[in-house]
């Protein structure tokens, strides 16, 4: 794992601590800070009769029946369908966001045109509108689209993805734009002289070099689209088409019939895809380092 082999084979605590040991101390402290509120969620997910926060006695019972019920025994709450829907919506949104954002970032980074500065700024400003009631307009918009193209309107996953892609430009573009700027322009100039068109330069020269930021933007977009609740709950009405965020919330939305333990089990399982995706993408995120070290 470590790229630089230790020069001295003998282990010296002080030296180890000065080099990486303190990093582990910080890592452990923050790992505890990150994880300890979620231990409650895990504990309640394993206790079918417990409450979420009724007691500080954690893991008084370890029983997987909440998980079994969620996966197999609740035809009214099709957890497996929600899970798959979420994966599809998250992956399609993430990949499309990366593609649309990278196209725009390339234009902003490599081309000079009137309104470029203002354009970049406007992209960010538009997204600052308070979302408090944007859903009203989104509902009416999708309702109108449904009347023309039912396949991409209300209660369709494509419709939801389209709404999410409305946010594809914006912060993400800016993030990529900053990264694109660090790729030397001499590379595309060289490609141009070799006779490569703009599209080929983009796809074969630039994109491979900006892998880390593509991975980061893809992950951010995946997580934000899979955890998004407000728009998804307005667009998707049929339970079999809903996402995890919408479906799981229905377990606890009514105080009198809230089922927190079942909800917790669902939340634990819902957290797996983003973490798995991150684990998978890490090598691309960090690729810059390794590539640099190899060179």
């Amino acid at each position: 794992m470590s790229q630089l082999p230790a020069r001295r084979p003998r282990f010296r605590l002080r030296k180890w601590f000065a080099a990486t040991g303190w990093r582990h101390v910080i890592g452990i402290v923050f790992a505890v800070f990150c994880a300890f509120p979620l231990v409650y969620v895990l504990s309640s997910s394993l206790n079918p009769n417990g409450t979420l926060l009724g007691s500080n006695t954690l893991f008084s019972k370890v029983d997987f029946s909440n998980y079994v019920n969620l996966l197999f025994n609740l035809p009214q709450q099709p957890f497996v369908a929600w899970f798959l829907n979420t994966l599809v919506i998250g992956l399609v949104t993430g990949a499309s966001t990366v593609f649309l954002g990278a196209l725009a970032a390339y234009a902003f980074s490599r081309m000079r045109f009137a309104g470029r500065r203002v354009g970049l700024l406007t992209l960010l400003l538009v997204q600052m509108f308070p979302q408090l009631l944007a859903v009203v307009a989104i509902f009416l918009l999708l309702n109108a689209i449904s009347n023309i193209f039912p396949a991409i309107g209300l209660n369709t996953q494509i419709g939801l993805i389209l709404v999410y892609l409305g946010g594809a430009l914006g912060v993400n573009t800016y993030l990529m734009y900053g990264f694109f700027n660090t790729v030397p322009a001499s590379l595309d100039e060289a490609a141009k002289i070799d006779g490569a068109g703009h599209a080929r330069t983009f796809f074969t020269i630039i994109l491979p070099l900006v892998g880390p930021i593509l991975a980061v933007v893809g992950l951010l977009s995946f997580i934000s689209s899979t955890s998004e609740y407000v728009v998804a709950s307005v667009v998707l009405t049929d339970p079999t088409r809903q996402t995890l965020a919408v479906g799981l919330y229905s377990f606890i939305s009514q105080a009198t019939s809230a089922n927190w333990t079942l909800f917790s089990a669902g939340a634990v399982m819902a957290a797996i895809p983003p973490m798995a995706l991150f684990l998978y993408l890490q090598k691309y995120v960090i690729s810059g380092l390794t590539a640099g070290a190899v060179k």
Binding site: Q76, S233, T237, S250, S253, Q254
Partner: peptide, 14 residues
């Protein structure tokens, strides 16, 4: 159609 009980009234009005 199964709906989230907490949202039936607001969704219906909309």
């Amino acid at each position: 159609i199964q709906k989230d009980g907490a949202k039936i009234v607001s969704d219906f009005i909309q």
